[in-house]
Design a protein around this nucleic acid. Structure first.
Lengths: 343, 343
DNA sequence: GGCTCTCATGGGAACGTTACCACGCGTTAC
DNA sequence: GTAACGCGTGGTAACGTTCCCATGAGAGCC
């Protein structure tokens, strides 16, 4: 029952020209009689012609599609990245094939294969495994996103600028009258932990605080991980935790819950600064002050870098996108009060 | 610098057979000598052959791609839908083209065109405009998702079962000792408002409460809309709002904020029940009790319906997926206390 | 032993597009 | 007046695959 889709030949016949001429008119070529062009365009409209991208891709070697492989589209940060990529791609009239890898190397590889079979013009990948070699082997242009991209040298990649992020976070802390924050960071096995810690230490030195005096607790990058870490912190004797800086918003929210569990109040008793900028942070009580990673910008920039890569002008550099502070209510303003420590 | 991708001809040559034979072997055809098949498969592996889906699509008329047009991939509900669709599609070895329409008819139409040009085998769409006629005209198989799909008769669609959702919500309310809830619903212009209200009224009658006595306030489907609505509710004289049922989680969270603003406590003074199941509900204080829409299941089911549609066995029916209650802390348990109203 | 029948394989067309080359016509220049 | 040129157009090959038909060899049958 489904009608055959009209082809360029149908258009050509209706316009009374050859398909070459029709193709030229449709492509908006210069060397064509105005009147002929009009006729072809009218014919195309009349029959409802829609250029077949499959055929175009076959002939030209360009499918007009890009692939995006992220851990989980359901994760707000990655959804944001996807959205940025999508918008930029749509602008260039390119479609986006989206896949979720669930941090599973096997899935990642299978998605990568699907991408190759679909003949995407390039791919943006948040790498979990080392299967990327394959991409390279087939010469598929690609750019890496996220912090794990740093494992791969000589590949274009886009991520957030965590050094700058930590800097604005720490600046905000001192502006509010806080000093050296207690840190809740990820597990030792994670590369991100080290990078975060390094940045904090470097900036502490700049502010004349001895990195050695920084109190550090770690846990899984989850709500529960943050909660447990905060609970342990609160159990430590002698230490007043006036201000904690969590390496991720989920942990920060977990910490906030732990504080409340112990009968303390945020931010009056302990201030909390998060890192990520997940939307849920707006709905906690108090609202979470955090540093937002520019997910959308990362997606946009990644597509742009990918275009460069495809056009054959690879930069092969790592791009760091700046983060920005979202000032809500989980950080007490001590700058107007005389004393720095709560009871 | 980029190497030419190996084609089936390269495989055939290496295996010393014709491309027809190679194609048959790769397709796993029966009528082929075991030894020949082995040879072809080995050759394919050796040269790193990857079937070109563009060419396959061209020849067979099946691109192996599906389109998904949702309002915003950044919205957790839609991300969930996308994820469900993605997983089901991947299972069938089909790729998913994802687009965000931002509730903008112009964008929707442009995305729909892109989908047609890409020659997707079918599309799943949350319709904002009536441009869907076009899809129909071209005979592209499609299934509609979300509540707005009800505007279109005789088209397969998948949505959440709001009647059942309201039922479990109301059941939960009475189980916790509450009676007729105050309602915060969407603006009068929205179709969803009427459906929600109808469901509540129908079920109220079943429980012997006069729908006429239901207190109703409306506002935009946003945090601020819910906040304002709750504030107006709290300003009404004579009425104690022991329990409010919001038509959407954002409004529910807004209402929660309004309650706090007025110096009241949730759930001690007013209980709140949401509707949607957004992840942020887990992070509010208190945690939001809500009815979760089965986003992921909707996505999965939509792909399945779309497969039916593509295979030419259209059901053209509307499928309603059941919702489920997420019991957190925003609903007071009055069932153990003698009195039903707070001071 | 010659016929048909089966089975594995090869050859070629077709899907819809674009790129290249050729052609014919009108204009310009010598 | 003819050659050269430019311009608009038509014809055709090619992209990589699958499908249909043809071919040839071997087996089975009378």
């Amino acid at each position: 029952m489904r009608k055959r889709r009209p082809t360029i030949i149908d258009v050509a016949e209706r316009a009374g020209v050859s398909k070459s001429t029709a193709a030229r008119a449709l492509a908006g070529a210069e060397s064509i009689l105005g009147e002929t062009r009009e006729r072809v365009l009218a014919a195309a409209k009349a029959v409802g012609y829609e250029r077949n991208h499959l055929a175009v891709g076959m002939r030209s070697g360009r499918s007009g599609m890009l692939g995006l492989v992220i851990p989980d589209i359901t994760n707000p940060f990655w959804a944001d990245v996807a959205r940025g990529a999508q918008d930029r791609a749509a602008e260039a009239d390119v479609s986006l094939l989206v896949f979720s890898s669930d941090w599973d190397p096997a899935k990642e590889e299978s998605h990568l294969r699907a991408l190759r079979r679909a003949r995407v013009d390039g791919a943006i990948v948040n790498p979990v495994s080392d299967a990327l070699d394959d991409l390279d082997r087939f010469g598929l242009p690609f750019v890496l996103i996220g912090s794990s991209a740093e494992r791969f040298a000589d590949v274009s990649s886009v991520g957030s600028d965590i050094t700058q992020a930590v800097e604005i976070g720490l600046d905000h802390l001192v502006a509010k009258g806080h000093h050296a924050p207690t840190l809740i960071v990820g597990p030792k096995s994670r590369l991100a932990r080290t990078r975060f810690l390094n940045a904090v230490q470097r900036h502490s030195i700049k502010r004349d605080v001895d990195p050695g005096q920084l109190v550090i607790e770690d846990g899984e990058y989850t709500l529960e991980g943050g909660r447990q870490a905060m609970l342990r912190l609160l159990d430590r004797p002698h230490v007043g935790h006036t201000c904690v800086f969590a390496a991720n918003d989920m942990m920060a929210i977990g910490a906030m819950m732990a504080v409340r569990e112990r009968g303390l109040r945020c931010p009056e008793d302990v201030s909390i600064l998060g890192f990520d900028g997940i939307p849920s942070g707006a709905f906690t009580f108090p609202g979470l002050t955090t540093i937002a990673k520019p997910g959308r910008d990362i997606g946009t920039r990644a597509v742009e870098s990918l275009f460069d890569e495809i056009e054959g002008r690879p930069e092969h550099g790592r791009v760091y996108m700046p983060c920005r502070l979202i000032d809500r209510a989980s950080l007490a303003d001590l700058s107007r009060e005389p004393r720095k420590m709560a009871g």
